[in-house]
Computed example of a mutant assay.
Amino acid sequence: AAPVAQDAPPAAAAAAPGSFLKLWSAEWMAGQRSFTTAQAQDYARRMSLIVAMRGKFTKDIAAMKAANPSLKVLVYRNATFGGKSYPDSLYAKNKSGQRIYARKWPTTFLMNISSPAWAAEVGRSCVELINVSKYDGCFLDVLGSGPLMGNYLSSLPVTGGKTWTHAQWINWSDDITVAAKRATGKLVMGNGLGNGRRYYSPTMSSKGLVPGNDGMEAELFVREAHAPVGQFYSETTWKQDVDMMIDIQNKGSRLLSMTKVWTTASETQKNAWHKYALATFLLGSNGNSYFCFLRDKNAGASWGAHPYNQIDMGTPLGAYAKVGTGVYARNFTKGKVVINVGTSASGLRLGQTYRTVDGARATGTVTLPAHSAEFFLK
Rank of each mutant, 00 (worst) to 15 (best):
V132C: 04
V132G: 00
S133V: 15
S133I: 06
S133Y: 13
K134D: 14
K134P: 06
Y135T: 12
Y135W: 10
D136R: 05
D136W: 14
G137T: 08
F139T: 00
F139K: 00
F139N: 03
L140M: 03
L140H: 01
D141K: 07
D141C: 01
V142E: 09
G144A: 14
G144C: 11
G144H: 06
S145E: 15
S145L: 09
S145K: 06
P147Q: 03
L148V: 10
L148F: 09
L148Q: 08
L148H: 11
M149V: 13
N151V: 10
Y152I: 14
L153D: 11
L153W: 09
S154N: 06
S154F: 05
S154I: 06
S155C: 11
L156S: 11
L156D: 09
L156G: 05
L156H: 08
P157D: 10
P157I: 05
P157E: 06
P157A: 05
V158T: 07
V158Q: 03
T159L: 09
T159E: 10
G160H: 04
G160E: 04
G160D: 01
G160N: 02
G160I: 01
G161Q: 13
K162W: 03
T163G: 00
T163A: 15
T163Y: 10
W164P: 03
W164T: 06
W164H: 07
T165F: 05
T165V: 11
H166E: 12
A167V: 11
A167P: 01
Q168D: 15
Q168F: 03
Q168N: 14
W169R: 02
W169H: 07
I170N: 02
N171V: 13
N171H: 12
W172Y: 15
W172H: 00
S173W: 04
S173H: 05
S173P: 11
D174W: 04
D175W: 03
D175M: 10
D175I: 03
D175T: 13
I176L: 05
I176Y: 05
I176Q: 01
T177F: 10
T177P: 01
K181H: 11
R182S: 13
R182H: 08
R182L: 15
A183S: 02
T184H: 02
T184E: 04
G185W: 11
G185A: 14
G185S: 07
K186W: 14
K186N: 09
K186D: 12
L187F: 14
L187G: 01
M189T: 02
G190V: 07
G190Y: 08
G190P: 04
N191G: 04
N191Y: 08
